[in-house]
Amino acid sequence: MIRIQALTKRYGRFAALEGLDLHVPAGETLVLLGPNGAGKTTAIRALTGQLRPTSGRVFLTGLDVWREPVAAKRLFGYVPDRPYLYGKLSAVELLRFVGRLYRMAEARIEARIEKLLAEFRLERFASALIETYSHGMRQKLTFAAALLPEPRVLVVDEPMVGLDPLAARTVRELLAGYSKPQRAVLFSTHQMELAEAVADRVALLHEGRLRLLGTPEELRTAYGDASLEEIFIRLTEDAAGVEPTPENPAP
């Protein structure tokens, strides 16, 4: 469903992403892990048509995001790491705007808005201007906007920032279940527990390269029953040249 082929993004001599290959089939939730500056957001921006790659291609259900952008963009919903929205619109106005961009029928837009606002507990603030929303409310509204057209692919960059516990549980359930049976979810996070809880597979990026790919169980088995967090620290420290210690041995 999502296919990333030899994706490279360079800024002069600095490579933010180097030859990334990934495939996320229908029914799968793939989590991108990696320290700050690993290339997760760069990969997501190239995938969502915001950042033109230096080389490589990105396909969504066979459509090249950079060659057929409008058709490809109709297939995914996107939640960025920072929920910048139009402060002078209300939630319902923003959602109608998004629905119309996706050419949804007016009746369907209204039905979906009602359902999503209730799901994210925003219905009481539906006509209040977004500029009066808290960070968490904006994040929830961004999720509602991404889910409005019922996209086949959901792409999320750091989903849990600013969410209250109730909203966090809603989002966790959403990320775990949305891909089943015929959709795909790709999201990046720093929260290892979240990755372990919802990921079908995990991809670890470091310094722009793919270092590790597999299901959480496969990775735990390969690294002596270590948690994802331990594996993450070992791999990123090894790559940074940290000497292994008895407390922190090399795999």
């Binding site: 705007f97 050419r103 219905e123 603030f125 006509s127 009066t132 929303y133 409310m137």
Partner: peptide
Amino acid sequence: SVLRRARPPSLWERLLARLGPVGALWIR
């Protein structure tokens, strides 16, 4: 944040919305 439930779209909005994405951009 003020408690304000969803209001239906106004007439001018429904008319412009018929233009598709361009209408949506103009409404916004």
